[in-house]
Write a protein that binds this DNA or RNA. Sequence first.
RNA 1: GGCCCCAUGGUCAAGCGGUUAAGACUCCGCCCUCUCACGGCGGCUACAGGAGUUCGAAUCUCCUUGGGGUCACCA
Length: 476
Amino acid sequence: MEVRTRFAPSPTGFMHIGNLRTALYAYLFAKKHNGKFILRIEDTDAERFVEGAVEKIYATLKKAGIKYDEGPDVGGDYGPYIQSQRKDIYLKYAKELIERGGAYYCFCDKERLDSLVDEKGIKRYDKKCSRLTEQEIKQKLDLGVPYVIRQNMPTEGESGYEDLVFGHISVPNNELEDHILIKSDGMPTYNFANVVDDHLMNINYVIRGTEYLSSTPKYNLLYDSFGWQRPQYLHLPPIMKDAQRKLSKRYGDANFEDFIEKGYVPQAIINYIALLGWSPKGNEEKLSLEELEKMFDISGISKSPSIFDEQKMKWLNAQYLREFSLEEFNGLAVPFYEKSKVKGKYDYLKLSGLLQNRVEILSEIPGMIDFLEEFGAFDSRLYEHKKMKTDAAVAKTAVGGALEALKNAQFNHEALMEALTRKSEELGIKKGQMLFCVRVALTGKESTPGGAVEIAELLGKEESLRRLEYSYKLIE
RNA sequence: GGCCCCAUGGUCAAGCGGUUAAGACUCCGCCCUCUCACGGCGGCUACAGGAGUUCGAAUCUCCUUGGGGUCACCA
């Protein structure tokens, strides 16, 4: 049978990393088994709906390279793929379920429900309306008393199932509450809609977060009541912000879009989150989506929560950045040059050549090149470098010499290097000392993307000499 | 609190009864080198605790501890 998985987000805002990973795994699992991946929008809660959230979901999935075979904007044989457009379907099935004894009308109002609080302050429905006679129900219905439809749970025994990652899960039936299937506004709750839709859309592998691990028996009971075949389940451990807190949009934690803005490439984000909660068989960790599609395997999924480590994602991002051609890298970097002080000045391609393997995420760029436009007094201790064996005294010699050497030099790489090398020999200092001091004198920075020659070339003759003179005076 | 689940370095993690307990990120050192970075080499750091089972336990069982999830007319 063809594998069919789905990603069923609710449009309540941005797509955060945890959701994206769930989508990714569902996608990878389907692809691995030559199956289909479906996108379904779960918008049965009108109150939580956020304008533009659906479009954000489409855009994120697209940018991430996660292609769905069926979905609201691409169609398919099992539509509509937006739950709010399926309202009538749920009601029909809910009524069928009532006939089958798996559910019942409930007319209890809020006051009564609120009174059902146990000594620990936990509310729990007491099944009162499940005991209503047919006449009573008909009467209330005819009178137009507002109602909800509740699932009728067994009160004894246990319900269990085999989760593909967690193994056997079993819950005592008396823990299962008669939760609401159809709300008083006629809309289904997640509890009902997800089961009906998964069945109707032929979803045979349900992949989702562990928050559903212990409520899955309820859903299975629904499948059973309908006489439908249960799907296989695959629950995913959460991604944590730290040991205690889950990554969430509530804390304003990074969502996909934010990372893109910070200068991460989609491939790196996808690669990283694929590795959060799953590990490949081999030791290779830098994996493309295509490779992941082939390698993905349930056996590599872990059961315990994992903490999101941006440091490692940064490292991966750096790996991807270095792999691009200079032109590709430059294309990605330009927006960040435009945001920096060097906007419009300097040859971007040249800057990219210096920056490509010094940058981990693109947003570091402005901070790394601002010195090209910002120059002023700095501490002469910057000239001290243990390995170079330099200090202010050496610097004075070097910078003074450089000033002479460069007055008549051509400002291209070769000529600059030659002039400075010759001068250092003349002065009896090491070439490294000369270059180090000149670089500091030129930039006033402890470290820079590029050495003395490269920076002098970038700054040009006039500016370089001006800075050298300034720095020379500064040493005195 | 009830119920469900989880537990290997700081982090991601391999491991499936016998291993010197992989690998990656981070950090540190060395090499390369005009600083930094890249690259190369090397290093530090882990089986939560306690009982069992077994010739032998990170691996199996139980308890403790710690952590997560869930108990909505939210998904």
